[in-house]
Design a protein around this nucleic acid. Structure first.
Lengths: 230, 230
DNA sequence: AAAAAAACATACTACTTAGTAGGTTTTTTA
DNA sequence: TAAAAAACCTACTAAGTAGTATGTTTTTTT
């Protein structure tokens, strides 16, 4: 990520006539990195970050270590990129939900549904993101890595903040019960995110089946399990 | 665990006059093992199973590897014992709740409260238990280890089953909504168990503070977040 | 008190693995 | 088309780690 952006900046500063060329080049490099990221995500999910060797990732790519170290300086940097992509998926899924029109309860429901579906669809990456939470005390050696780690943590905080705000808004407009905002946000998100432990996609899984499952997950969180005594 | 039980059995077969003696001896050995288990749990929680070396565990004990390998044949066996203790804590906490008198909703609430409090109190061990879920494809080499792994997985399934049954009973007696039993069980438990990622005990934490926090966690799960439109 | 066993510590081995150095092939640029 | 850069591969190093073999001290048994 950092390399890519720097390359773009440098070329932009030169401001040559050839604008599309370097972009195309950068995009090509990005695609190559995405292959590596994808393989790494699968390996990290299956065996865990520490149990996965760079050789494992390379083997899955059908190549050798050399290819990976051509694009990434360290295993840590590769993990960070997997994590970053995972968070990007979550934010991309949440964004439309955030601009939903309606009362607090409606907005929160749409947000939870979007998040649940994203967790299922990108469960490989989100599994790795969860590992990143545990690897809080990461062996981030270089200043660059420490900065990246800070960004990742900040990114997760921002994500959670959206849900806290939605819950607070719902309480304010009276469409949500007066729950503890912070704890409830963690519990709701936890309920959905725990799916990384039990959800494994089936061959016949589609967006529709994931949406149905997401509905079954979100329903008890929104409505509760207690029957309303009318 | 296996060693201990076998020792007991052997002595019992001898059926000597001295019954209390070997029991005392076994208990002493158990206490020593518990020290190791406790250190291992802390290390596994902080850095993760794979990132933790046996030397790390020994260092925390103020000893060397020799001590650990005197009691455990392998790192895997040590992990299994930590996991087993973690599950024991959960079952011990849940047992009284299971025999609660009352309708389905009441029983489920008591169960969730008990589980939430146990998750908070033994969060170190439960963190390791969660790692065990991920390490599903464990490098269980010996037949003995494979058997133990099977038991651990079975143990987790049994635990979840109790909640599924409670939910089903609540639906049957009309005190719970007609939710998807299986998915709801996973979501509710996930909401509580996700606390391993965010809960860290404070110095002034007591059983009372944990109970209050557990209440804030269980409330939105039982009652939902949506305000009832009377 | 002598013998036996338990509870360790020390020092070592065999193996894995992150990262590197340098070479080779392919692609791009000039 | 020649040169330069990008995209790899191969072979290696240094460091860490699970597990073992053996010795030593402490405790328990007889």
């Amino acid at each position: 990520m950092c390399d890519v952006e720097k390359t773009v900046t440098d070329k932009a500063q030169n401001a040559d006539a050839l604008a599309p060329e370097p972009i195309k080049k950068v995009r090509k490099r990005e695609l190559k990195k995405e292959e590596i990221i994808s393989s790494a995500a699968s390996c990290f999910m299956e065996r865990g970050y520490h149990a996965t060797s760079i050789d494992d990732v390379a083997r899955r790519l059908g190549s050798t270590k050399g290819r990976i170290y051509h694009y990434y300086a360290s295993k840590t940097d590769l993990f960070f990129d997997v994590h970053r992509v995972g968070m990007t998926y979550l934010f991309d899924a949440l964004r439309p939900a955030l601009s939903t029109k309606g009362d607090g309860a409606t907005v929160l429901r749409v947000m939870l549904m979007a998040h649940a579906q994203a967790m299922l669809e990108y469960h490989t990456f989100e599994n790795v993101v969860a590992q990143g939470v545990q690897l809080h005390r990461f062996e981030a050696t270089t200043p660059d890595q420490r900065e990246t780690l800070r960004e990742l943590i900040s990114s997760r905080d921002t994500f959670e903040k959206h849900f806290k705000e939605a819950i607070a808004a719902g309480i304010k407009d009276g469409t949500l019960r007066k729950v503890d905002v912070s704890v409830t946000a963690k519990v709701l998100l936890g309920g959905l995110q725990w799916s990384i432990f039990w959800y494994r996609p089936r061959d016949n899984d589609t967006a529709a089946t994931r949406k149905r499952l997401a509905g079954k997950m979100v329903d008890p969180l929104m409505e509760g399990v207690v029957a309303t005594r009318a």
